[in-house]
Design a binder for these strands. Structure first.
Lengths: 74, 74
DNA sequence: TATTAGTGTAACATATAAATTACATAAAGG
DNA sequence: CCTTTATGTAATTTATATGTTACACTAATA
């Protein structure tokens, strides 16, 4: 579950704790998400996007890994 | 938690059951998500996007409602 | 030193996503 | 009619996201 939360967070100059407070979770949750060690809820993803001023695609999109017949995606 | 899953699903001509099988959940889970009655995991959102050939932003993005001056959200 | 800020992580508890089973309705087709 | 398909939903269980508390380490700084 890799993502760009850490990059996006640093770009808006927030610590894990500050981001956590902004989106209403604990610092540990942000840490685990950044490390890719789990699978946040859509609601939390959206809150993070709002906090770092990016969209879901920018922060959380992951290309489908090969092994799936790809019908091209934009 | 509104979204465009139903529209996207119909556009690619899948039933709830077919979509559920494709993404590896039950029909009930798809039904509840379409009804906006809960808050799927990022992983499931991505699977749904792959299945309907759209991106997270296209299916799950919700604009921040006004009061967006990053004070208290929630 | 030592003290603080920022981060990683582990154990346990709680909240909730998701599965399972079941029943209901409506529509389409035999 | 009857059966099947598609869908909504409720109750209960299971899996896991998230909270809480705690301890660790590094880097900077007094």
């Amino acid at each position: 579950m890799n993502n760009h939360v850490k990059i996006a967070r640093v770009q808006v100059d927030l610590t894990q704790k500050q981001l956590a407070d902004k989106v209403g979770v604990t610092r540990q949750t942000i840490s685990l998400i950044e490390k890719g060690n789990y699978n946040p809820s859509l609601k939390l993803c959206l809150e993070i996007c709002y906090a770092v001023n990016k969209t879901l695609d920018e922060v959380f999109w992951i290309e489908r890994e090969s092994g799936h017949h790809e019908k091209n995606k934009r």
